[in-house]
Design a binder for these strands. Structure first.
Lengths: 123, 123
DNA sequence: ATTAATATATGTTAGAAACATATATAAGTT
DNA sequence: AACTTATATATGTTTCTAACATATATTAAT
């Protein structure tokens, strides 16, 4: 949707706030993955628009590694080009826990908002 | 939290995506308000950090008016400086409905994520 | 007279998402 | 052998949103 000045509104285009960070941490909590692999798994997590922007994934992985929340090592075995295998660290697991708490709050306030909206509609 | 390069992470600092738009539309759906009044009611909606940034509120009101989702008129009656009274339009109501659907989806995917997280923790 | 509360508004910076493109290896196809 | 597609990682640029800062005017309270 655009307003009358032609400016994009974006309004009801659904988008989670910083979804990619908890999503990647979650997938790495489940097991070791490399970036390209994460890209294919992210849409399955419900959080994301398809197709996934590779730039977002690789940059987030770098960011997480800078913060010692994940670590990586090159994997030259197997077929295809070399992959960088990522593993979550202890700090990363704690961080995911913080994220989870935040997302729980987020869900609760959404719930509250939706309830109030429904009450209003019923009048 | 900052990473080792001193860059702000922001990571688990909870924040809703574009919360202010549906929140304001919701409050105006309930009844007519002016900006300063909305500012005081927003924290109550759970969506927001306190205190509210006036800039965000007044700019969003302008934006909504540009898109004909709300309309305003000056109110010089009553005490204090003149207020601009905002009313939601029919288009605004429809728009709020779209937002509500989006927020419902948002809540559902959060629910799904939290469930999967819990399952993983129980192992 | 001075300060605080009410009310609206704009400027500027920083952060995040979206969009675009670059590069390299390997596997499959004709 | 040449060409195309899939795998894999990476960076550059633009747009959008949030955060932070400041300006201005009116009225109420001390």
């Amino acid at each position: 949707m655009r307003n009358r000045h032609g400016k994009r509104c974006g309004c009801y285009r659904e988008r989670h706030n910083r979804w990619i960070e908890p999503s990647i941490l979650f997938l790495l909590y489940e097991g070791t993955h490399h970036g390209y692999d994460l890209m294919s798994r992210l849409p399955d997590l419900g959080f994301v628009q398809d197709p996934v922007d590779p730039g977002a994934v690789y940059r987030m992985l770098r960011h997480l590694e800078d913060g010692d929340l994940v670590k990586s090592q090159w994997d030259t075995t197997g077929s295809g080009p070399a992959k960088r295998l990522y593993t979550i660290t202890e700090a990363g697991k704690e961080h995911l826990k913080l994220w989870t708490d935040a997302l729980r709050q987020r869900r609760d306030s959404l719930d509250e908002f939706l309830k109030r909206m429904q009450q209003l509609e019923e009048k």
